[in-house]
């Protein structure tokens, strides 16, 4: 069973590399879809059905948005990177972050043993033990996001609202003519 998990992870990694390196933008967008659906299967494997449902639906809408942006536009394939010096500096910095990250990976717990299992009176332990009693919801994730940590959801609603207002302002029709044209 764990083999399937590794195959899916490698599938996501390869799809990401293809999405980054391909010349055609439409192929890159489709590879992003492959990453998202692979991720949804992995969430199912990791016993997170809530996330799997949300991810698979969000992926469909995200693909529609991305294809809307790329389809029927000229110059969709721009090859090449930025200037040479900037690219070299960026790659060096990325390599440094990479090395630092691999140092951090050693200090993590092993895969398959969550942190809260070894800690006394961890928050997650309380949620699992008392969730049904306190909130009455059998889906513990739902009881966390709407009861224990409802402020989180309120902030999420605010962020989503702000993002939608920003997109609406950017896409409105009135501002399409610049002031010189109006005069």
């Amino acid at each position: 069973m764990i083999v399937v998990f590794y195959i899916l992870l490698l599938f996501m990694l390869i799809a990401a590399i293809i999405a980054v390196e391909t010349k055609n933008l439409l192929s890159a967008v489709i590879c992003v879809g492959a990453i998202g659906f692979g991720g949804s299967l992995i969430f199912l494997f990791l016993r997170a059905p809530d996330i799997a449902i949300t991810q698979i639906v969000v992926e469909v809408l995200g693909l529609i948005i991305l294809i809307r942006a790329t389809i029927a536009r000229d110059l969709t394939s721009i090859s090449g990177d930025r200037e040479f010096f900037g690219t070299v500096v960026s790659i060096v910095i990325i390599f440094l972050i990479f090395m630092a990250g691999f140092k951090v990976l050693d200090s993590l717990h092993d895969f398959g043993t969550p942190v809260y299992a070894k800690t006394e009176k961890a928050a997650s332990q309380t949620y699992i033990e008392k969730g049904l009693e306190d909130t009455g919801a059998t889906n513990i994730v739902s009881s966390i996001i709407l009861d224990y940590r409802a402020y989180d959801t309120l902030g999420e609603a605010t962020v989503l609202f702000t993002a939608v207002i920003g997109a609406t302002v950017l896409l409105r029709k009135k501002s399409r003519k610049s002031p010189e044209v109006l005069e």
Binding site: I65, A69, T135, G136, A137, S142, L146, A157, V164, L171
Partner: peptide
């Protein structure tokens, strides 16, 4: 059951659905 959790679910579903549809239509 579960008090206000189903009500919050309905409200959040309304909000998320309406705002995402609005964005995609505008795009």
């Amino acid at each position: 059951s579960a008090g206000t959790i189903p009500l919050s679910n309905i409200v959040i579903g309304l909000k998320v659905g309406a705002s995402l549809y609005l964005v995609i239509f505008l795009l």
